[in-house]
Simulated scan of single mutants.
Amino acid sequence: MKPKMKVEGFKDAERALMQLPKATAKATVRRILKKAAQPIADAGRANAPSREGNLKASYGVGTRLTKRQGRMSRKESEVEVYVGPNDPAAVQTEFGNNHQVAEPHLRPAWDSERRGALDTIKSEQMAEIEKSVARYAKRQAKAGRK
């Protein structure tokens, strides 16, 4: 089950992003999402049982999936950021199996930090977009355009 959030009220940010080239806009959104997702990864790392090899160390935020995860996933938007461990044993630890009881670590992290992630997106988006617009304008001026 993939958790989903529906967010409304970001029309000004969308308009500002539309003025940027597509690659610049994607990079801007990616930076915002990574910053918002980091507290979820930190909470998951803190919740993970320490006896499970390198589970704690494997937590992170990124834009890529493994080949196996990529085959199982379908792209749902232009920019996607993933949070969680890259240790294959994490699934067994999170959900349990016939030989091991479940020890959830990522779901409690998501439950406790999702509102904070949304607040970070709300508060950081316009500042990050303004920085990107300024950088883009500076590059254009340096190149002699506009």
Rank of each mutant, 00 (worst) to 15 (best):
M1N: 07
M1E: 12
P3T: 08
M5P: 06
K6R: 15
K6Q: 11
E8D: 13
E8F: 11
E8L: 12
G9C: 14
G9H: 07
F10M: 13
F10L: 15
K11C: 04
D12Q: 08
D12I: 12
A13L: 04
A13W: 05
A13Q: 14
A16R: 12
M18A: 15
M18S: 14
Q19N: 14
Q19D: 11
Q19V: 15
L20I: 04
P21F: 10
K22R: 12
K22T: 14
A23R: 08
A23S: 13
A23M: 07
A25Q: 03
A27F: 01
T28E: 01
V29W: 00
V29F: 03
V29Y: 05
R30N: 12
R30Q: 10
R31E: 12
L33S: 08
K35D: 02
A37V: 10
Q38A: 12
Q38F: 14
P39A: 13
I40D: 00
D42G: 14
D42A: 11
A43P: 02
G44F: 06
G44V: 00
R45S: 12
R45G: 08
N47I: 06
N47C: 10
N47Q: 10
A48V: 03
P49M: 02
S50M: 09
R51E: 13
G53A: 09
K56V: 06
A57P: 08
A57L: 13
G60D: 07
G60R: 05
V61Q: 04
G62A: 15
T66L: 14
K67F: 08
R68Q: 10
R68D: 11
Q69N: 09
R71I: 14
S73E: 09
R74T: 12
R74G: 06
K75T: 15
E76G: 09
V79N: 11
V81M: 09
V83S: 04
G84Y: 02
P85I: 01
D87H: 01
D87I: 07
D87Y: 11
A90S: 12
V91E: 12
V91I: 10
V91K: 15
Q92C: 09
T93K: 01
T93M: 05
T93H: 01
F95Y: 06
N97P: 13
N98R: 15
N98T: 01
H99A: 09
Q100S: 11
Q100Y: 06
V101S: 10
A102S: 13
E103T: 05
E103H: 10
E103K: 03
H105N: 08
L106F: 06
L106D: 02
R107M: 08
A109W: 02
W110I: 09
W110K: 10
W110M: 07
D111T: 12
S112M: 07
E113I: 05
R114H: 13
G116E: 15
G116Y: 05
A117N: 02
T120S: 12
T120E: 00
I121M: 02
K122H: 10
K122S: 09
E124Y: 00
E124W: 01
M126N: 07
M126H: 08
A127K: 11
E128S: 07
E128P: 03
E128D: 04
E128F: 00
I129T: 02
E130V: 13
E130M: 07
E130W: 03
E130T: 15
K131L: 08
S132E: 07
A134M: 02
Y136S: 07
A137W: 01
A137Y: 02
K138P: 14
R139K: 11
R139E: 14
Q140C: 15
Q140W: 05
Q140G: 09
A141I: 00
R145W: 11
